[in-house]
């Protein structure tokens, strides 16, 4: 009996173009599996963004629109509302990095949450700007060495990182906000369950749902894929705890 196969919502013959050991691949695979399981493929419009996440449309076999850097939640708002106006509701989700969601696009992201837009936002948090070569991002941790914080992130000089999932949970329009990680089997399975819950939140017309995914960036962290996962497990989850910060989906 075949117990595992490539998800149907992954494009045939597509090959991920991420760096070796990057968790983006796992995240996209989980999303594809959930789209299959919830039977959303024909009704989904995905919004990709700038950064490593932009290439989503090369891998996912669903309709996809690329948003300008940071604007994915605004673009998703427009898509969702337009289809609602034509009485043909669609499933709309964004796939963004932490720089996209929580730095340049924080305004659009947070206001989509505050309005309670019935969309789902997925944010890959790898604590740096990956595609441009590992600069300090909004989620870079205190003391983290990046190409633009060569002496380590310093609170006096650089200020503090953002705890995105906690912040988004504070918005009244947010119905679901959680943080997951992908560093081992248990966490990958937990992530899938939680992303599925976020998707169901939208499917049941509850309102804004958000999942922050702690992801590895072996290339820019200058660590092996294995050591990157150890770093997430031992260091990052202490700073960015894995939890569900808001869940009103059962209310």
């Amino acid at each position: 009996m075949q117990v595992y196969s490539i998800p149907k919502s992954i494009k045939k013959d597509s090959k991920f173009t991420f760096c070796k050991g990057c968790d983006h691949g796992v995240a996209i695979k989980l999303i594809a599996e959930i789209i299959d399981e919830l039977n959303l493929k024909d009704d989904t419009i995905a919004v990709s963004s700038s950064g490593c996440s932009v290439l989503l449309y090369n891998f996912l076999d669903v309709d996809c629109l690329e948003a300008p850097h940071g604007r994915a939640c605004a673009v998703a708002t427009g898509i969702k509302r337009a289809h609602k106006a034509r009485k043909d509701d669609k499933f709309v989700f964004t796939y963004q990095g932490d720089g996209d969601f929580a730095s340049i696009g924080l305004g659009e992201s947070m206001h989509s949450a505050l309005r309670g837009e019935n969309i789902t936002a997925i944010c890959i948090n790898n604590t740096n700007y990956g595609m441009t070569g590992g600069q300090m991002g909004p989620t870079s941790t205190m003391g983290q060495y990046t190409t633009t914080s060569p002496l380590g992130r310093n609170k006096e000089y650089h200020g503090f990182p953002i705890k995105t999932a906690e912040q988004i949970a504070l918005c009244d329009g947010t119905q679901f906000s959680a943080r997951v990680a992908l560093y081992d089997i248990k966490n990958i399975l937990r992530a899938k369950k939680i992303i599925k819950k976020a998707f169901e939140c939208q499917k049941n017309n509850k309102g804004f749902s958000f999942v922050e995914i702690l992801s590895s960036c072996p290339t820019n962290w200058k660590l092996s894929p294995q050591d990157s996962h150890t770093k997430i497990k031992d260091e990052l989850t202490k700073i960015y705890p894995l939890d569900i910060f808001k869940d009103t989906t059962n209310d």
């Binding site: 075949q2 595992y4 090959k15 983006h24 796992v26 081992d184 894929p225």
Partner: peptide
């Protein structure tokens, strides 16, 4: 056929698991 290898593979390079 536990499929753990397929679950962690970031490339979907493990294309089938049969149990």
């Amino acid at each position: 056929g536990c499929a753990q290898c397929a679950i962690v593979c970031p490339e979907i390079a493990i294309i089938e698991v049969n149990r």
